[in-house]
C-alpha cells in the first residue's frame, strides 16, 4: 500500500491542527475502538467558516483527510462547505488506497456534524 505524495505531505505537515476554544460548532465522529476518531471545531463569521481546526486519532489517511478538509472549507460559506463531498477530499489528495476510502467519509461526516451543531446553536 502506497500513499500519494499529497497524502504524505498532509500526514507529515498537517494543516489546522488543534481545537478552537468556545467554537461555534463541534463535530465528533468515529470511535477509538475502530481505530479512527476525529474532532472538528469551526468558527463562523457572517455565515463564513473563518477558522477550522481538527484533532484526529488514526492512520495516515485519517490524518491527511482531516487536514485536507480543513484546507478545502476554510473561507467558504456554510452552504458551499456542505457541498464538499468525500470524493472531493479524495480527489484533492491525489487518491487513497481502496481500503482507506472510509477515512474520507469520516472527515466529511465530522464537518457536517460541526455545521449541524453550529446551526442548532443558532436556532436556540
Amino acid at each position: 500500500m502506497v500513499y500519494s505524495d499529497t497524502v504524505m505531505d498532509h500526514f507529515k505537515n498537517p494543516r489546522n491542527v488543534g481545537e478552537i476554544k468556545d467554537a461555534d460548532g463541534t463535530g465528533n465522529v468515529g470511535n477509538p475502538m475502530c481505530g479512527d476518531m476525529m474532532t472538528i471545531t469551526i468558527e463562523v463569521k457572517d455565515n463564513v467558516i473563518s477558522d477550522i481546526k481538527f484533532k484526529t486519532f488514526g492512520c495516515a489517511a485519517a490524518i491527511a483527510t482531516s487536514s485536507m478538509i480543513t484546507e478545502l472549507v476554510k473561507g467558504l460559506t456554510i452552504e458551499d462547505a456542505l457541498k464538499i463531498t468525500k470524493d472531493d477530499i479524495v480527489e484533492n489528495l491525489g487518491g487513497l488506497p481502496p481500503i482507506k476510502l472510509h477515512c474520507s467519509n469520516l472527515a466529511a461526516d465530522a464537518l457536517k456534524k460541526a455545521i449541524d451543531d453550529y446551526r442548532e446553536k443558532l436556532n436556540k
Binding site: 504524505m8 500526514f11 507529515k12 475502530c34 481505530g35 479512527d36 486519532f57 488514526g58 492512520c59 495516515a60 489517511a61 485519517a62 490524518i63 482507506k100
Partner: peptide
C-alpha cells in the same frame, strides 16, 4: 492515544523499519 500505522510511517521517515498490530495497516 495514537494509532500504529501513523507511528510506523513516521518512524519509516527516520529510516526505522518496524511493524504494527494495528488494524489500519
Amino acid at each position: 492515544h495514537i494509532e500504529g500505522e501513523s507511528i510506523l510511517l513516521y518512524l519509516d521517515m527516520q529510516g526505522i523499519a518496524v511493524s504494527t498490530g494495528s488494524a489500519c495497516s
